[in-house]
Amino acid sequence: MIGLLQRVKHASVTVNKQQIGKIAQGLMVLIGVEKDDTQATADKLLQKLLKYRVFCDAEDKMNLSLTDVKGGLLLVPQFTLAADTNSGLRPSFSSAAPPSQGQELFEYLVKQAKQSYPEVECGKFGADMQVELLNDGPVTFNIKV
């Protein structure tokens, strides 16, 4: 499972001109699901997202996690993260999970996140989404578990 984590001042997701998710300061994470991913993989990614130290402390060092700063978590499904771009000029999605597996694991991740953390918002699997964010730093990490 892949999480493209971005530290944000704010972020939102809109579908069909309706905002379906919005956070202030926190993490906006694009989620890619691969064929070999399981619920255990999703659990491991979630724990990393909640505890990954990407927020600055009083000495301007990245020592604080999302839970430390009590920021929002916006999870957005993005199957293109699982693309193989190593050859040619067109991405291959051979390593991406089939849509049913991807949706099941994304929804599982969201459910677990909402049970573990108070401020969780999400995008909609399979929808044409517009994602807006103000990247803080910019700080972006590609996390693969």
Results as ranks from 00 to 15, higher is better:
129 M>A: 10
90 R>Q: 10
70 K>W: 08
53 R>E: 08
91 P>V: 00
139 V>I: 15
35 K>F: 04
108 Y>H: 10
69 V>K: 13
86 N>G: 14
74 L>D: 09
98 P>T: 00
124 K>P: 10
53 R>V: 10
41 T>R: 03
37 D>Q: 05
29 V>R: 05
128 D>R: 08
72 G>K: 15
106 F>V: 11
30 L>T: 03
123 G>T: 02
110 V>Y: 04
74 L>Q: 07
46 L>S: 06
112 Q>G: 04
20 I>T: 14
99 P>D: 02
124 K>I: 13
48 K>H: 10
31 I>Y: 03
126 G>H: 04
95 S>L: 07
88 G>K: 03
29 V>K: 06
119 E>D: 15
113 A>E: 11
61 K>P: 00
62 M>G: 02
81 L>M: 14
35 K>P: 12
9 K>N: 15
82 A>T: 07
3 G>T: 05
140 T>Q: 06
75 L>I: 02
54 V>F: 07
1 M>W: 02
140 T>D: 00
77 P>Y: 01
47 Q>Y: 01
22 K>D: 10
11 A>H: 01
62 M>K: 12
29 V>L: 06
46 L>T: 06
19 Q>V: 15
44 K>G: 03
15 V>P: 08
137 G>P: 06
28 M>A: 14
111 K>V: 11
130 Q>C: 08
72 G>S: 11
88 G>L: 01
81 L>T: 07
67 T>F: 01
39 Q>M: 12
33 V>G: 05
54 V>A: 12
36 D>T: 13
59 E>H: 11
99 P>I: 00
133 L>S: 09
89 L>W: 09
87 S>L: 11
131 V>W: 03
67 T>Y: 00
12 S>Y: 05
69 V>E: 12
73 L>G: 06
61 K>N: 12
82 A>P: 10
21 G>M: 08
127 A>C: 03
36 D>W: 08
52 Y>N: 08
101 Q>H: 10
28 M>H: 04
